[in-house]
Amino acid sequence: KCTICLSMLEDGEDVRRLPCMHLFHQLCVDQWLAMSKKCPICR
């Protein structure tokens, strides 16, 4: 589950894993990281 948009991560979707190993939709986390340089879970 992407904790930014709260939707399930589905096969075939573009996802991004951060160095902390948390996984998000690529678009969601890219937009998040443009505003904050910290993982939305770890922050």
Rank of each mutant, 00 (worst) to 15 (best):
H25E: 01
M35Y: 04
A34D: 05
L33F: 08
Q31T: 11
I41E: 15
Q26L: 07
R43M: 15
E10M: 11
C42M: 00
C5N: 02
C5F: 01
R17K: 12
C2H: 01
Q31K: 15
C5M: 02
E13S: 10
I41L: 11
S7N: 15
R17P: 06
S7F: 07
A34C: 05
M35L: 11
S36Q: 14
S7D: 06
C2I: 00
Q31V: 06
Q31Y: 15
P40A: 02
Q26Y: 06
F24P: 02
C20A: 01
G12S: 08
D14Q: 13
E13G: 12
L23D: 14
L6N: 15
V29Y: 07
S36V: 08
K38S: 13
P19N: 06
L33I: 07
M35E: 14
A34K: 12
G12L: 05
L6K: 15
F24Y: 12
V29T: 07
R17S: 10
D11C: 06
V29E: 05
L27I: 11
M35A: 14
R17M: 09
W32T: 11
V15M: 12
C39S: 05
W32I: 11
Q26S: 12
K1I: 10
I41S: 14
S36R: 07
L18E: 04
F24H: 05
P19C: 05
D14M: 07
C20W: 00
D11W: 02
D14G: 14
P19G: 11
M21V: 03
I41V: 11
R16W: 08
R16C: 14
D30I: 06
G12Y: 06
D14V: 08
E13Y: 05
S7A: 14
C28N: 00
L9W: 01
S7G: 13
Q31W: 03
D30L: 05
K37H: 10
K1G: 04
D11Q: 06
R16D: 07
L23T: 14
C28T: 02
C5G: 00
D30K: 09
V29M: 10
T3R: 07
I41R: 11
E13D: 14
S7V: 06
P19K: 05
F24G: 15
V29F: 09
C39L: 02
K37L: 08
C2F: 05
F24K: 03
D14L: 09
C42Y: 02
S36L: 08
K1W: 04
C42G: 03
C42S: 04
L23G: 11
W32M: 13
E13F: 01
